[in-house]
Design a binder for these strands. Sequence first.
DNA 1: TTCTATGCAAACGATTTGCAGGGAG
DNA 2: CTCCCTGCAAATCGTTTGCATAGAA
Lengths: 135, 135
Amino acid sequence: MLEGLRAAGVRVTAARRAVVHALVDADDHVTADELAERIADRQPDVHRSTVYRTLDALERLGVVTHVHLGHGRAVYHLTDRMHQHAVCEGCGLVVELGDDVLGEVQARLERETGFVVDPHHFALVGRCRHCAQRV
Amino acid sequence: MLEGLRAAGVRVTAARRAVVHALVDADDHVTADELAERIADRQPDVHRSTVYRTLDALERLGVVTHVHLGHGRAVYHLTDRMHQHAVCEGCGLVVELGDDVLGEVQARLERETGFVVDPHHFALVGRCRHCAQRV
DNA sequence: TTCTATGCAAACGATTTGCAGGGAG
DNA sequence: CTCCCTGCAAATCGTTTGCATAGAA
């Protein structure tokens, strides 16, 4: 992957190596800040803004994708680990969904209105099994 | 509606009257800032924060609902004009959808995982007919 | 009179940007 | 040697909050 960067004319630096490693190590659903914290354990001088800029660069290369889980917080993951998300507004639980949950809806919407839904960029929101009961 | 406020133990003030009128007059999908601007035409001393606080109060009473249309901007509308939204990430176009678009998906998700989707709080994102073509 | 609602300014959280210096190629 | 990348500080955007006062009931 780092070689891929170099091939794309992007420079490979210590900060970028750190971001890539942190991403590979991460269980999914990491925020930029969480990544920055984890990186700071070993490289305290990697600045938050660099993490953002690196994530941005990786995203433009197509190897990283971000998802909005609701108010504010966006999470990042490797593109090849792509899947859809549902977020509980009660407890914040993130449910991973198959890539096809919206299949029929997407198809019908496109056929009828021409609108092409991007099911990955924003999570579905709602209430998980537990929180749904105590509303 | 204003009487409803009074009945709920909430005070009816000039600012609140203005917000309610602006909401009623508005074609859907108004941001808090847009409301504040429109109100400022006639009552320049109604502060943005008051608009936010009033919308919040109206929302707690159940007569107003807000929807997140993507990055940042939230839009408000009267609860009885409720419907689902799809937003184009290319041009910002807001498509109004019936209340049932996600019906099957919602049902299946709840049956299989217990997750109850709230299809109103966040819009579906994607690309409208026109923007979908030039990607 | 009482206590909620308001204006103002300042704080907020997540992210972005301008700048001058540092380091990859 | 050239430019991209970085750290830092400051700016941004949408929204919220603390405060002392105006005003609804």
